[in-house]
Amino acid sequence: MTKNLFDFLKETIGEIEDFNENNLESLREIVRKTIKFYQMKSFEETEETDKGKISFLHIHSMAEENLLTKIVEIALNSEKDIEFAYQGNIIRKY
């Protein structure tokens, strides 16, 4: 059985403890769950620096980027995209 994006997002947000739409980590958790659920080739990488942890999103294709952007738009109910969720730390591999 397939789910539409709204149902998937509602269920995923329900699974995240203390979800806060103003918290980038909550938003990134949704992105990680989306990548896993839809079996995408995109992946997240975290790097430890002297300023703390920095998360990078490696995007495999335009289709995956469009889906992840749509997920962020629906989750925040705004025009913000995947670039916002990762503060510009996007590496495109297409």
Rank of each mutant, 00 (worst) to 15 (best):
R28D: 03
F37L: 00
Q87W: 04
Y86C: 02
L67H: 06
I35A: 05
E45G: 10
E44L: 14
A63E: 12
I54P: 08
I91Y: 10
M40D: 06
A75R: 02
F43N: 10
E48M: 12
K36S: 15
S42T: 07
F37P: 01
R28N: 06
E73I: 05
K53L: 15
S26I: 08
I35W: 01
A75S: 11
E25I: 09
S42D: 10
L57I: 08
E48P: 02
I91V: 15
I35E: 01
F84C: 07
I91D: 11
N66L: 13
T46H: 04
V31R: 01
S78T: 12
M62A: 12
L27T: 06
D50V: 11
G52D: 14
F43L: 06
Q39K: 12
K53M: 11
K36E: 15
L27Q: 06
G52M: 09
L68E: 00
E47C: 10
I71W: 00
G88P: 09
T34S: 12
K80G: 01
N89G: 07
E48N: 09
S61V: 05
T46C: 09
V31E: 00
L67Y: 04
I82P: 05
Y86P: 07
F37N: 03
V31N: 00
E64F: 06
L27G: 06
E65D: 05
Y38D: 00
I35H: 02
Y86S: 10
M40G: 02
M40V: 00
K70Q: 14
E65P: 05
L68H: 01
T49F: 08
I74V: 13
K80S: 04
I90Q: 04
L68R: 04
S61L: 03
T46I: 06
I71A: 12
L27K: 01
Y38W: 13
N66D: 15
A75Y: 00
T34N: 04
F56H: 15
I54C: 13
E79G: 10
F37I: 02
E25Q: 12
K36A: 12
V31C: 03
M62Y: 09
H58N: 14
L67A: 04
K70R: 14
N89W: 05
I59S: 03
F84P: 05
T49V: 10
E25G: 01
M62W: 04
I54Q: 15
S26A: 13
R92M: 03
K33G: 04
I35F: 02
N66H: 11
L76P: 05
